[in-house]
Design a protein around this nucleic acid. Sequence first.
DNA 1: GCGACAG
DNA 2: ATCTTGTCGC
Length: 225
Amino acid sequence: MITPEFYDNLTPSEAVALQKELREKIDCTPLTTPVRYIGGADISFNKFETTVYAGIVVLKYPEMVVQAHASVTCTVQFPYISGLLAFREVPALLKAWDALTLKPDILVLDGHGIAHPRRLGIATHFGLIMNQPTIGCAKTRLTGVYQEPGNHRFDQAPLFDKQEQIGTVLRTKPNCNPVFVSPGNRVGMDQSLEIITRCCGKYRIPEPTRLAHMLVNQERVKGSR
DNA sequence: GCGACAG
DNA sequence: ATCTTGTCGC
């Protein structure tokens, strides 16, 4: 069992090696059990500080009504390095997950799933070590090529790496930049898009991640005073 | 060598 | 990610 402590004293080089090992275990088989609860996870922190606030919000699916939430605060040592985001944020998220009284059927992470150079975005990483269905929903591209989707709600375009589709670029709201949706683990490509689409309200960011972001920001303001 | 580069 | 009010555009 991987605990938050497992990540202590891990070097970037070792992190990349671990990603290459985990890559073999990725499972993008569509989830067959019903999704009744969906979670949104995110972290927040003050610039130049090592204290991070992690939180997870659980909502009824597809009604998008909040059912539960948990947030924790802890310190991180691993720096932000593009491609290694999971090693900075997952430890804190694991603690928030433990504190959750109601575990969601699927979790949406603020970042990519398999739309990553080694297919190990934060959503895939979390999903693999927790054997939990996950979806990655990032605000900007990390890797891959795509054609800009139309400017209407839910217009979309596949995100490719070579010949392989690694995600979908989704316009969740007109006149707003699209979001990047990709399977994390134990969920299919089309299924992840379908689920995220149903989580969209009147904002660019889907409800699970949007509410998690608001939660951790409030915790940060509270905690840093 | 140069540009790109989730949060 | 975070620092931050008003303001331009759909």
